[in-house]
Design a protein around this nucleic acid. Sequence first.
DNA 1: CCGCATCCACCCGGATACTG
DNA 2: CAGTATCCGGGTGGATGCGG
Lengths: 119, 119
Amino acid sequence: MVKICNYGFDQEVIEEHRDIYGIAYTQNVLSGRYKNLIIWYLKEKNRRYNHIKKFLSDISQGSLTKQLRELEKDGIIKRTVYPEVPPKVVYSLTDKGKDLLSIIDLMESYGKRYGEQPK
Amino acid sequence: MVKICNYGFDQEVIEEHRDIYGIAYTQNVLSGRYKNLIIWYLKEKNRRYNHIKKFLSDISQGSLTKQLRELEKDGIIKRTVYPEVPPKVVYSLTDKGKDLLSIIDLMESYGKRYGEQPK
DNA sequence: CCGCATCCACCCGGATACTG
DNA sequence: CAGTATCCGGGTGGATGCGG
């Protein structure tokens, strides 16, 4: 059994289907209830912590911070602190993060096509 | 607070960012540890239950059945039962499911580009 | 304003045993 | 072969309180 991210596969399965590496990795980066919404929200422009918080209306502070830290750790977003009082923190997409936008854009158009339309 | 799939948003947020409907919907359809791997695996050809099981080497029977049922309920895959002994069940992608392949293909190439390469 | 630390609830997925 | 039924453990996200 070979470990790939959080998945385990038989050796022979891996040899026959090498593509699963890529899928597993991306799945890992995007796994998290709010991550693709955060990335999408940073597409238009950089955002401050509180803007993201208001956007994801029902997320808790603790959860938001966790998701942001993970995205930062994976190199998807960049965190910039302005040493002011009161503090100001701005999040922006890295190049690696911007490359995810094509995926999220597809998700958006797919959902628009098949999801229930808002009334 | 307006409910969209499993998310809650303020009314004004929704009015300003209607695209979140699509993202939330697609996220919902693909949420599940193994779903995009299953869809990708059905891309090449239709597969029997046990083939999928062997492909996802470390998934349990119960989990696999649950994921397949959800995908079926969302109209992503089709389940065909051949009334033989022993039983034979084949899963295939619907058109709605095939439309997800563009997303998964992008995930695959993204992961190939940024993920750690297998040794 | 933007966090961290802690604790907790819930749900997904895992394990096991059993059927048509 | 392809499930269903049941129970259980871990991890993710929620809630709250405190701090720079």
